[in-house]
Every structure is written in structure tokens, then in C-alpha cells.
Design a protein around this nucleic acid. Sequence first.
DNA 1: AATGCTCGCAACCGCTGCTAA
DNA 2: TTTAGCAGCGGTTGCGAGCAT
Length: 327
Amino acid sequence: MEHDFLQRVREKDCLGSVQIVEQVIIFPAVRFQGMGKGRKPCCDKAGVKKGPWSEAEDIKLISFIQKHGHSNWRALPRLAGLARCGKSCRLRWVNYLRPDLKRGNFTPQEEETIIKLHETLGNKWSKIASHFPGRTDNEIKNVWNTHLKKRLKAKECSNNSLMSSDISTKDSSLNEALDGTGTDCSQQVIMHQTSPSSSSSISYSSQASFSDHQMSDYNPELDHVGAPDPNIVGCHGDEMVVDSNFLDELIEIPFEPNLDLWDLLDGDSKSNRADPEAQSSKLDQIPNCPVSESDSRINKEDGGSWWWLVYLENELGLDHDQPKSWN
DNA sequence: AATGCTCGCAACCGCTGCTAA
DNA sequence: TTTAGCAGCGGTTGCGAGCAT
């Protein structure tokens, strides 16, 4: 069967590949023993690192996803040379490393929108996040738990106290509400104050969200991040078939915490892909950029998405190791 | 300056539905 | 049809930063 698959790859009638594949590399799936059915375990927990991510790990993850996308989270850590669980990689990428993330505090309007959406959707954080391009479900969940929930409760309790003040301020439960010690304030008060019908003034963006569960619907025409890599010419179960030619070109992407640079790249890849002149003008935007337009490592057809890496490589003397697991 | 407390956020854990074998 | 892994989701936790004493 494997032979047939390779044959089909070579004959270019597999998976729509248009590349002439001289050599292919099969990433051997470790066939799990002792289990008759099902798949192999997600990861070997004994060798999996946990806890905060280091910069080096971030760099490895970003560089791999930029190059190959993330169609298979389980295989990703092995291929990227990361001692992490795929689940952890996915979380790190989705919640922290994605270049389209919108950092910073939530605006009052965003907070208001979260409150309104929470009324109708409840704790469906991923659905709520889909209304906020660049925000993650985790981020929204955090802001709800740390700010909005408390704020609502305080507001709710103060409303309760106002409503009840003309009835009796001697009622012990209401006194609890007044001093903030009460915990059973009625949610229905809030529902009334911010009913869905009153949300019409809030304009929701129709732009696609990048909440992790929706990235599978991501349109590769819009951006190269997350798109299937053309050098991965096929998948066969747990095995990825890769055109070995590209391995020679592989460099790792240094982690760049400067969001402006990510924005710059983002615009670059979309608008200047077929415009080398526009691309080279971008070079001028980095002061003292030592990279010449004629540097052969800059792939013009890529729209200049990688030129800054060469810049950083030169400037910082970064050592780009090849991923360890390409064999 | 040292200590303790609170808060916010990143990351982990466990569950669920789907799907591959 | 059954079994078990995968991806995604939501709840929870742990740790570091900032603030108060």
C-alpha cells in the first residue's frame, strides 16, 4: 500500500500535487504495538516538556508553522523538534504566537459586546471570540472571569439594592447585597438591563475569526500562515510526504515580539506578493537594514515575507538549526 | 527593604464529539 | 460495530508582577 502511494505521488496524480518529486521522505509513523484498533497515543508524556515556553521553543514553533502550516498538531512537535505535546503547541500558537493576534486591553465597546454575547451564548467562549478578530477565546474567558463578571455582579447588586431600598433595608439578604457580601444576585436583572434587542447599536465585524476551532476553515488564499505547504506533497495516515528539495532552503524564523513588524509582514504577504518593487520598498522601512535587494536568500515570489528573517539573521547572528526530526 | 496579598494571564487538565483503524 | 486517538472547548490552576503594609 505504501508503495502504491509513493507511486501515485511520483506520477503526480495524488492530492493535486503539481510538483515533480524526485525524492520523497516518508516520516515513519511509529506503529503502536499492543493495540489492535484506534490510533497511537498523542504523545509520550514521559518526554514531554510542560510549563512556560522559552523563546527558542517559540521560534521553532513559529518557523515550522510559517513554513508548513499546522494541518496535524499531533505530528507537529516531532517534526518541529519540540519536546512538547501537540495540544500544548496548538494552544501556544493560537493564544500567543499567531501573528494576527490583537494584543492590549479590551476597549469599553469590546467589553460591552462580550457582555451582550454572553447573555445569549453563555460560556461559549469560542463562539464569543468569533465576533472579535484577533482575540482568543482564552483571552475573552480571562477578561470575563477577572473583570466583567465582577463588574456585572457589583452593578447587579447595586441595582438590587436600589430596587429594594423602598421595600425594606432591614432584610438581611439585601443588606448582604448592599455591602457586596451577597453571592446570589439575580442574573435576570442583568438580562433585563442588557437584553439582546438593545444590542443593535453594536456593530459586529463580519471578518473571519481565527479562533482555534475555526482555523480548519482558514482560506489559504488569504494568507500563507496556516496554509498547506506546497512542499508537503501528501499525507498518508500519520505520514507526511515531503519534497526533499525544499529542505535545503529551510531556515528557521526568529521570534519577533515587535507587533508592528508582524503587521508589516502581514500586509506584505497579502498586497505585495507579486510586486517586487513594493517589496523592496519595505526593506527601507527597517533602518540600517543590511540586506540587499539582490540577496539571493530573499525569495521575491514569496512577496518578501522572509526578507526580514535574513535581516535578523545577519543582524543578530542567529543560528538557524535545521529541525532535528526531518529524518 | 522585606513580607504578604491580590490580580491577571498563560498554560494545563479533563471532558466531549468526531473519526480513523 | 467497536475501540481509542484527535482536535477543540471550557474550567481551573500556578506563577509572576504589582501593590500594600
